[in-house]
Every structure is written in structure tokens, then in C-alpha cells.
Design a protein around this nucleic acid. Structure first.
Lengths: 234, 234
DNA sequence: GAATTCTTATTTGTATGCAAGTTTGTATTT
DNA sequence: AAATACAAACTTGCATACAAATAAGAATTC
């Protein structure tokens, strides 16, 4: 039986706000209050505060002393550093996987990524999930749970921009090709070549994503301003 | 001017509980309630809860659904993995520092570690602080703030056992010798040698600390039981 | 008309009240 | 005597009330 989450309401609120941030419904710089949220979500301030403080610790929000909450702006330098850390973790994982004697625990990845072209996933959202799972599984297979934990936190933090990578079809097929190559190299214990390919794969994805994000932000800000103009016209 | 912390009371409670855990006043497995704490510290349950949930997210405490709080037991496998991650981060930092053109930002470390024997620190507590600062500065000098953040979190998590390393005098002088060697190698751009020495330096410290921790736990448990016997004698 | 001061409304930090669920001790039964 | 059923006390999750501090706006002064 599934154990009940610790604070059900706080957890729901946490997920709700995070989704709104990820969906660009709450934009960087937007301000709001605890009472706003508790009224809008129909719960009291207590679980709202729990969720907000959690999101603050994770770097999504900031709170002014008795002056309200706001969404922290995007910091692309920070994303660059997160991607850099990610590369380091995954390169280490690859090195260790290539040193494993006997069978590597990568059967699941083979079934997903070493498939015929007509078996490939085409949905952008599912593709984003598969991509995360690929890289996460590499780190998991290396066996250090703390590295896995850090990698998961990091994956969570870059997801907001990373998933935009699969809006273009050619990026989906490129990802399939590169994952297949990396996976084959690891299976053949070609540690160095795999690491080099991984680095360029991630770096490429990073620069693609950056372009799209700037575009999305521009769009969302435009829609917001048009929306607020309509709102203020009443 | 220093900005006021977000939740002053919750922050104080957080520090207080953490100190009690670190000082083995609260032992792994100990149970307590929110009301206990709020009475003992003279504040209401709200800031107490904020602090407890923060400590839970950081892995020090766990809460049962309406059945109280408890201190999570030591997990030496987890400490091993944290030390492993730490080595990886610091090795990467050394590699990058050795690739820096021109002056490396390590002047502060030279002033502390490349000194005559009679200039060396002897106090165990100060030594623990200096040791943390040495390794932290290496990572900081490498320039990636996310790696630094992870390293700091990790440093915080292993501090509870790591600081026990300096209770023996010979460990202090060994640390001085090894830090000096590592630092000189980095300044001479001997990346590989520095990394090897660093790994053995950290591994050595880890095994020393493990022995002492088991001893301390034994002692503390004994004192606790003697204490509770006295308490129950009234 | 611009700057400044004072007032008022807003906002978070903290304390407390209440309800649902768990644990523990006791009494009853086999 | 052991096991089980039951009840009372306890504990957390959530809601609400209150206080201190801030921000915004109005009134006043120069």
C-alpha cells in the first residue's frame, strides 16, 4: 500500500505552484501574497506557507520581510553551471560504468533507445520524460546514491527549460541518434569516446534550449501584457 | 547592513536542534514531540514546525503521521557515498585550477597552510574549521557556484563526524603536511599528482573518523543510559 | 507644483484552537 | 497467563486570530 504523504495539502499546493511556474503561468518577477494563494486554492495559509518556503529553499521564489512573495527571474549563468555540473556527474557515471566487470545494468536503456526508426517516440512531452530517464539511469547505474540525489535535484531545476528542447522534430531524432551512439560506446567500454560524445550532446541541447526559452519568455510576457491590458479595460 | 533573516525564531530553533544533534545531545533514534520542544524553547509550535520540517528535508529527522518525531540513525554507507562525491568534486576543482592561466586565486590558502611548524593551529575546533575552509576554497576557486553549493551541503552533512578527526594531535599535523603538499602540487600545475594525494588524504580522514564516531556513539549511549537510570530513580 | 510627513491598509511572522488519527495502557476474555 | 479488545490520552495537520512591520496614498507644507 502506498504510504500517505507527510503533508497532503502542503504537497498539493507545492505541486500546483511549481506547475504554474513551469507553465509560465507565473512569470519571473510576478508578485503575490500568501492570502491570495490561500483564497485562490481554497486552503488556509498554513499549508500555503509550507509550500512557499519549500519553493524558496529550492530557489524558485523569494520573500520580502512583510512585503510579499515574488518569482525569481531566470538566471542563465546559473543554468550553465547546472549543465556543467550535470556533465561532470554523467561523465563520472560513464567512466565507472565502463569499468564494471560483467553485465552492465543497462538493459532497460537498450530496449528504449536501440530501436528501429518507426518504433521511436514522437510526442514532445513523453520524449522529455524519456530523455530525463536516460541520463538519470546512467547515473543511477553508477551506484552512488548521493550523486544520484544531486543529479535528480539538478534535473528538476533545469527541467523548466530542458523540456522545450523537444518541440522541434529534428531535435527528437538527433537525441535518439546521440543516445544510441553513447549507449553503444558504453556497452563496448569506450569510456573516453562516450564521455566526449555525452559532453557535446548535452552542450548542444543546452544551447538549443536557451534560444527557445528566450522566445517563450518573450511570448509569455506579450500575452501577459495583452491580458493585463484587457483586464485593466474593465 | 546585515539583512534580517526570514524567520528569526524558526532559524534559531533550527540552529538549536541541529546543535543538539551534532553534540550528541539528541541521539540517533531519540523521539520527541513538537509540544515538548515549543515548551522547552519557549516559543510556539509554528516556528518549531518550520525548523523541524527543514531538518527533515535535510535528512536529520523523520516524522511519523501523528506519532511524533525522531532522529534518524547514522548511515555509514551514506557517509561513504558523500565522501565519494566530495572527492569527485574536489578532484574536478583541482583539474580546473591546474588549467587556469596566470595567477590562481589561492593566496589565502598559502598564508594558512604553508607556514612554519610553530605557526600551526593546535585547537581541535579551529582546526576543523580551517580544514573545511581549505577544501571549500579549492572548490570555490574552480568557479562553478552550483558545484560549490553541492559541496557546501555535503560539507554540512559530514561535519557531524568529520570534526572528530582532529581530536588526535597526530591527525592535525598529518593534515597540515598533506594540505601543504597538495597545495604545492596545484601551484605547480601537477594536476594528476595533486588529485591522487587528495583522494588518499580524504580517504584516510574518512576511515579515521569512522572509528572515532563508533566510539563516540558508544560513549554517548552509555552516558544516556546511565542518565536515564538516574532519572528513573526518582 | 513638488517634496515631505503622517495615516491607513496590507503583508508576513507568530500563537493558539480544533479535529482526525495513532499509540499506549488497561481491562476483559479465552 | 497470554492475547485481544477497548478507551483515553497524545500528536500532528490544518485553520484562524493577532501583532509587528512595511508600503502606499493622502494631506500638508514649502
Amino acid at each position: 500500500m502506498a504510504q500517505q504523504p507527510a503533508n497532503p495539502l502542503a504537497e498539493q499546493v507545492y505541486i500546483r505552484i511549481k506547475d504554474e511556474i513551469f507553465d509560465f503561468h507565473l512569470l519571473p518577477g510576478d508578485r503575490f501574497t500568501e492570502t491570495d494563494l490561500s483564497l485562490r486554492l481554497g486552503v488556509s495559509r498554513t499549508p500555503v506557507r509550507d509550500a512557499l518556503y519549500r519553493l524558496r529553499r529550492e530557489g524558485y521564489l523569494e520573500v520580502g520581510y512583510r512585503s510579499g512573495w515574488s518569482v525569481v527571474p531566470f538566471d542563465f549563468e546559473r543554468f550553465d553551471e547546472l549543465y556543467d555540473l550535470r556533465i561532470m556527474l554523467e561523465e563520472t557515471a560513464i567512466e565507472r560504468l565502463c569499468q564494471v566487470e560483467g553485465e552492465q545494468p543497462l538493459a532497460g536503456l537498450k530496449a528504449v533507445w536501440l530501436v528501429a526508426e518507426d518504433q521511436r517516440e514522437t510526442d514532445s512531452h513523453k520524449m522529455a520524460t524519456l530523455d530525463e530517464a536516460f541520463h538519470c539511469t546512467l547515473v543511477e547505474a553508477a551506484g552512488n546514491r548521493e550523486m544520484l540525489r544531486v543529479h535528480r535535484e539538478l534535473t528538476e531545476k533545469i527541467r523548466i527549460i530542458r523540456r522545450l528542447d523537444f518541440l522541434k522534430d529534428n531535435r527528437i531524432s538527433a537525441t535518439y541518434d546521440e543516445h544510441a551512439k553513447i549507449l553503444r560506446l558504453i556497452l563496448r567500454r569506450k569510456s573516453t569516446e562516450a564521455a566526449i560524445l555525452l559532453r557535446s550532446h548535452i552542450t548542444q541541447s543546452k544551447s538549443e534550449v536557451r534560444k527557445i526559452t528566450l522566445h517563450m519568455l518573450h511570448e509569455a510576457r506579450g500575452a501577459m501584457q495583452r491580458g493585463s491590458e484587457m483586464a485593466s479595460a474593465r
